[in-house]
Design a protein around this nucleic acid. Structure first.
Lengths: 193, 193
DNA sequence: TATAATTGCAAGCAAGTACTTACATACAAT
DNA sequence: ATTGTATGTAAGTACTTGCTTGCAATTATA
């Protein structure tokens, strides 16, 4: 059984992501959550505070660095795929928060902080592989390129899937990772796509 | 001297892109435009209609297909750079509309229609180059990859520039185009970045 | 069983919103 | 000089919104 706070938080996340902060009323959020409007104010004081709670709740939920750390194998080629896949799944799983961040967070420094950490972590990983001569690309550029590509694919897929005309996201991601492998990984294996 | 309608349209574009449709009042748009609120209703009937006018006005302004057609040289390597540069500049020049599209257009089919046309045009261009053996990549995948990469770079740069940590957008774009040239262009020239 | 905490309900308030109406003013075309 | 057109001003209407208050009902705890 879900607690009242959870119900409110879940409904708020859904409504904010669909209609935007100013596009939905506390009354509607309450209805969606199946609680009385007053209950929202009792728990979160005011509407703005509720949005902050939604954002805060998300940052604990989606710890992508821990996830990728536990997935990595040590093999550069495989790990590049994992970096791409994990980041893509992170966006897919947090699509509501992605939309909220796009719309409501006005402070740049607080937006996509997960992505900032992720790209730094990937850069450091690749640098180590460069040091032991397993990888020849520029870690800073490659890591930023990978998450940019995935963000772009995800953005189009979310807002204008027509652009891809049926070509699946993973195919595009795989093709891109393949290019990097071909050009910069020392011991290449077979191509995946 | 700008006409009243232009002043309103410009102010509305700015306000909608910054604060969202529901985040700004007609009163505020009027003040920003330096006209009386009533004048807005006389020209655009209602607020929703004003948003439509903003979107419509933009679709005439940013004809990216005509632009790239006149820029293309026939040389694959150079033209790939042009496709990338023109699309990037298109996004930069229309950043306000980009934000409005993200926030306010709920009908997917009407979002990023320019990009849909652009990617089709690029795909057809590349297919011709494949037919005459100047290019060996998959036109459908490569064209979608290019605009995805640029969209991703632009998205991060707009919403979370921290991700790039000072690395310029054009550098990332150039690196990506270089990869495609290296792998798929038959007669390669020198590298650009 | 008694007590405390959580929630629902009804009413309301102050402010803001989109939009309207009526009238006055400025200016350009005839 | 007159007329039509575009704009400003002032006032107001009907509605929504965020938020509060008081009280009753329910549930959990002791």
């Amino acid at each position: 059984m879900k607690s009242t706070e959870e119900k409110i938080l879940k409904a708020a996340t859904k409504m904010f992501s669909e209609y935007g902060y100013n596009g939905v009323s506390t009354k509607k959020i309450a209805t969606a959550a199946g609680v009385n409007e007053v209950t929202i104010f009792r728990h979160y004081t005011n509407k703005s505070n509720l949005l902050q709670a939604v954002i805060k709740h998300y940052s604990f939920e989606g710890n992508i660095i821990e996830k990728v750390k536990s997935d990595l194998t040590g093999d550069v080629e495989r790990d590049l795929e994992i970096f791409a896949e994990d980041y893509y799944m992170f966006l897919v799983n947090n699509i509501k928060m992605y939309k909220i961040q796009m719309r409501e967070i006005t402070d740049e420094a607080k937006r996509f902080t997960n992505s900032v950490e992720y790209v730094e972590f990937m850069r450091d990983y690749l640098q180590k592989k460069v040091d032991i001569n397993e990888f020849t690309g520029d870690p800073s550029i490659i890591s930023k390129g990978i998450i940019s590509m995935i963000m772009g694919i995800f953005t189009f897929n979310t807002y204008a899937p027509d652009v891809f005309d049926g070509v699946p996201n993973r195919r595009l991601i795989c093709e891109y990772v393949d290019k990097i492998v071909k050009l910069y990984v020392v011991k290449k294996r077979t191509l995946k796509c």
